[in-house]
């Protein structure tokens, strides 16, 4: 379904560049050995900006929870209502979340706790975004 196209900024440019290459990368603090997402200028745990790097992750995750949108404020999504918005947690760290429309899954038939795999969807300005599909 058509989405708003993300405009990368200084902070998250590596994330979006990796998406365009079909890779999922997450900010990682080498000092704390801790992933964080959304990206921040500093590590939320140690406060340092010096130890942040981008780490590629497997692109596997699980469904945490969801709701079905019937009245979204976002104009470009309104034609596709109702649609799922699912909270995905990453296999490497269940504390890290991403949202997904869960392509391939019927509205409100979201399999609770199911495994998902990332894929990349191209938005109208050409920027790819991570989407997730139920596997297994």
């Amino acid at each position: 379904m058509p989405k708003q196209s993300p405009i990368p900024d200084e902070l998250d440019r590596p994330f979006w560049a990796a998406c365009n290459e079909g890779r999922l990368v997450i900010q990682h603090c080498t000092r704390c050995d801790r992933l964080q997402h959304p990206p921040e200028p500093t590590c939320a745990q140690c406060g340092s900006a010096d130890n942040l790097e981008w780490r590629q992750v497997s692109g596997r995750g699980r469904i945490y929870s969801y709701a079905v949108m019937y009245d979204t404020p976002v104009t470009v999504l309104q034609a596709d209502q109702p649609f799922n918005i699912v909270v995905i947690t990453l296999e490497e760290d269940p504390g890290i979340q991403m949202l997904s429309h869960l392509p391939g899954t019927t509205v409100d038939q979201v399999p609770w706790g199911a495994s998902v795999q990332v894929e990349f969807e191209t938005t109208p300005n050409g920027q790819k975004v991570p989407e997730w599909r139920v596997v297994g």
């Binding site: 708003q4 993300p6 997402h37 404020p73 918005i85 949202l99």
Partner: peptide, 27 residues
């Protein structure tokens, strides 16, 4: 609904991770 950033074809800032997916306040 359909105001400000929600009416745009593009999305910037932190909203990329949340409201850009169509979430509403009660989501």
């Amino acid at each position: 609904v359909g105001q400000g950033a929600a009416a745009e074809d593009t999305i910037a800032g932190r909203a990329k991770w949340t409201t850009g997916w169509g979430t509403v306040a009660c989501y």
